[in-house]
Design a protein around this nucleic acid. Structure first.
Lengths: 182, 182
DNA sequence: TCTCAATATGCAACTATATGCATACTAGGC
DNA sequence: GCCTAGTATGCATATAGTTGCATATTGAGA
């Protein structure tokens, strides 16, 4: 149950609405923690009940009212406690890899089509992260610890997407080699 | 809900008990699909109800009775259907990366200690996979498609663990650099 | 004017997964 | 003779996450 800590980490950087938080988790922190807006709002209510966040109603012209949430001292406290407690590694569950174990039933056409969708996704994500890197981390040497750590999370995202892309090329070769000769 | 397809894929290779299946998911398929034994047994009951598997009671001397499950034609049918239907990519949720976003609160000592546990895990897993590779895939050229696909799943596991190890070295440098000067 | 997309919020029901507990048998070490 | 580890099975409860639905405002475009 780390969603709450993801939200608190974001709020620790700056106040935000539930909507903002959902966007951040999907975009900048896409390779770190994901949640739907429904989950985000539910968790925010809980955090509010535990006095880990507060909110302020903000009237906006041109948009419906927004609840802007901020982290409280109590929130920082439980975030700090969580960060300094070891977390178990998440268990891998990947349907794509699983399909390789039932590869006997997987038809090349379907496999290649599915792969191409995934590859587009990996390519787009990689480019997104590279753009963030170019924009914010072009000179990483002088960065304070705080940002160097965030940069490492980004680098991990870059590494992961690159490795999926190169791995999937190998997979395409295997899938292609049985159809090509025909 | 791909657990059932993980179980069916295993049973498609050979009949097995719930215990065997749990072991396989933890070991050989550790980087593909994980489940607890409780989950495995529950899913097996469901699959039994849907006639996707059958079982045979096997009396063993020296061990309690075992239910050895096998896949049915019906089971192969739904497995085939699933394999040929595109799956969405799983959403990333990684507490370790999340901690980097709250890095301000993370004390170097705690961070390095947690990392060292993870690194031992990655090293052990990598060696396990390399051993499987050496044993079963030392000559990958002549392999039939079926095994080449399984080999790719293994290669992915090797790649992932290697990249965690190299990535975490960078993280250790960042964490170490603030304590070293003292 | 009507519809669509984006912003902004949230409930309810359902599914999936995790956690804690429970049982039973055997081999082997102390 | 007792305890532990490994094999083998399973239920009950709790938590986390998904999916479907619902609402409201505004600006832009057809």
């Amino acid at each position: 149950m780390s969603l709450r800590y993801a939200l608190l980490s974001c709020l620790n950087e700056s106040p935000a609405t539930g909507y903002d938080l959902t966007q951040t988790l999907k975009e900048r922190m896409g390779n770190v923690w994901n949640s739907s807006h429904q989950q985000t709002y539910r968790e925010l209510s809980k955090l509010l009940g535990e006095a880990c966040v507060t909110f302020e109603d903000v009237h906006q012209s041109g948009k419906p009212d927004a609840k802007v949430y901020s982290i409280t001292a109590q929130g920082k406290e439980i975030l700090k406690e969580w960060v300094n407690t070891p977390s178990p590694r998440p268990k891998t569950r990947d349907p794509l890899l699983l399909k390789l174990f039932a590869g006997e039933f997987w038809e090349d056409d379907n496999a290649l089509e599915e792969l191409s969708v995934h590859r587009n996704h990996w390519r787009a994500t990689l480019e997104k992260y590279l753009a963030i890197e170019a924009r914010y981390f072009s000179e990483p040497d002088g960065l304070p610890r705080h940002y160097r750590l965030q940069y490492l999370a980004l680098k991990r995202g870059i590494q992961v997407n690159r490795s999926w892309l190169s791995w999937s090329e190998e997979l395409m070769d295997v899938l292609g080699s049985s159809t090509k000769p025909l």
